[in-house]
Simulated assay, not measured.
Amino acid sequence: MAASRVVHVIDDDAEVRQSLAFLLSTAGLAVRVHESAVAFLGLLPDVEDGCVVTDIRMPEMDGLELQRRLHDLEAGFPVIVITGHGDVPLAVEAMKAGAVDFIEKPFDDEILLSAVRAALARHARDSEREARCAAVRTRLQTLSEREREVLDRLVGGKANKIIAYELGISPRTVEVYRANVMTKMQADSLSDLVRMVLVDAEGASARDR
């Protein structure tokens, strides 16, 4: 999956851009080069999904400001910053702002390739998790208010009789609501249903961070 995503190389030095592009493409990775952070941001949101490799020192907008902009835009690109020795504090700031890694110049080719592959793999996992969360949220929205009340109690570990007592309905009616919930949520079992609700809660927690 990682190989189907694009590595966006951002550097104001044309030779550096081409050198990095050659390294990454030789390793089988799809690459796009951008002459500045401003140029890259100008392509959003149509730019191909993937990760960003950017120099920390650039005119107009540096790598730190780029990372902040991407974070504010919720663009979702993992960012790897390349830094000179004197710019390490700046790179640390970029990581605090959400960058996934920084690499000091001069660096071994394999260090960069490993960082890029790790960033793409992590991004793929995050994207898959978000897709699962979105699917669960969509299903939850199809539930009626009463069905949601039954769901919340089922996930809380309560038996049908207890749910019936709390909601003032018969156990048989609870069974009907329970069956409707299972169908709408596309759950094969109660444990499957619990996992879905946990996935939704995890996704909500991640979005709030």
Rank of each mutant, 00 (worst) to 15 (best):
Leu120Thr: 04
Arg68Val: 10
Gly86Ser: 07
Ala201Phe: 13
Val7Phe: 08
Val31Ser: 08
Ala27His: 08
Arg209Ile: 10
Thr183Gly: 10
Arg207Pro: 08
Ala21Leu: 11
Gln141Pro: 13
Asn180Lys: 08
Leu29His: 04
Arg172His: 00
Ala30Asn: 02
Leu140Gln: 10
Arg209Thr: 11
Arg125Val: 07
Phe77Tyr: 14
Asp72Phe: 05
Gly156Pro: 06
Ala119Val: 01
Glu175Cys: 00
Glu149Leu: 11
His8Arg: 08
Glu166Val: 01
Ala97Trp: 00
Gln67Pro: 06
Asn180Pro: 04
Met182Ala: 03
Ser25Met: 09
Val79Phe: 10
Leu113Trp: 10
Asp87Ser: 10
Glu60Thr: 10
Val100Ser: 06
Ala135Lys: 09
Val81His: 03
Lys158Ile: 04
Ile163Ala: 02
Asn160Phe: 01
Gln141Met: 15
Ser170Glu: 01
Gln186Gly: 09
Met95Asn: 04
Asp188Leu: 09
Phe107His: 14
Leu44Gln: 14
Ala94Ile: 09
Lys184Leu: 13
Ile169Lys: 01
Ala135Arg: 11
Leu90Lys: 12
Arg172Ser: 00
Thr83His: 01
Asp46Gly: 12
Leu70Cys: 11
Asp109Lys: 14
Ala204Trp: 14
Val150Gly: 05
Thr173Tyr: 00
Ala201Cys: 11
Leu113Ser: 08
Met58Gln: 03
Leu198Lys: 15
Val155Pro: 12
Ala179Glu: 08
